[in-house]
């Protein structure tokens, strides 16, 4: 809230994440997994929707939002993911297809942000670290999946595994430049 400069933050990516969480957590209405699980779902939902609200409605934040460079169109990602979820899923129910759609969409939701970073020559420390930790966080899921595969019976989930792997791959190029800039102690820039 103190840092009102949101240059370099993609509203499109934030909106896609809000959509990801809204479609994934429909089970909150029908199933209970654990208190931790429910609390984390509420945190993901409230944080993603409040970021979108801030970027659209907050006067100071909106002013610094780099709208002209953030031109990626939602439908190019949302529609293919929806079609893929309708074709490839484990059960043909509304909740399950929405859940699968959210898995596919999450894998590619970072793309508008990566495109915006590439267009913005001067990458903010905040934005660079945000993207790095978002990718690092998701890549840890892969370790978790390997662990669960060996410790839990019947733990085989191709849809989440392949999507999570694709998601991490999309970050690979960014990771390379981020770690290089960190190692050489220079400001992060991406090649045009």
């Amino acid at each position: 809230r103190k840092n009102t400069n949101k240059r370099g933050v993609s509203l499109k990516t934030q909106e896609l994440y809000a959509l990801v969480f809204a479609t994934r957590y429909l089970d909150m209405f029908t199933d209970f997994i654990s208190l931790y699980n429910t609390v984390m779902k509420l945190i993901f939902l409230s944080s993603s929707f409040s970021i979108v609200w801030y970027m659209r409605r907050h006067k100071l934040v909106r002013r610094s939002y780099d709208k002209d460079h953030d031109t990626f169109r939602h439908q190019f990602l949302v529609l293919p993911c929806l079609i893929l979820a309708l074709l490839i899923h484990e059960q043909f129910t509304f909740k399950e297809v929405m859940w699968t759609f959210s898995i596919y969409l999450e894998a590619v939701a970072i793309l508008p942000q990566l495109v915006l970073l590439q267009r913005t020559r001067n990458i903010d420390n905040l934005t660079g670290q945000y993207v790095f930790f978002l990718g690092a966080y998701r890549s840890l899921y892969i370790l978790n999946w390997i662990y669960r595969y060996f410790t839990e019976p019947h733990y085989v989930h191709w849809i989440t595994w392949i999507s999570g792997f694709v998601q991490t791959l999309l970050y690979a190029d960014f990771f390379y430049y981020y770690l290089n800039s960190w190692k050489n102690n220079v400001k992060l820039t991406l090649p045009a």
């Binding site: 089970d27 699980n37 779902k41 859940w99």
Partner: peptide, 10 residues
């Protein structure tokens, strides 16, 4: 299978 078999991930 039950819903939370693999939907327990966030």
């Amino acid at each position: 299978r039950e819903w939370d078999d693999y939907h327990d991930e966030l």
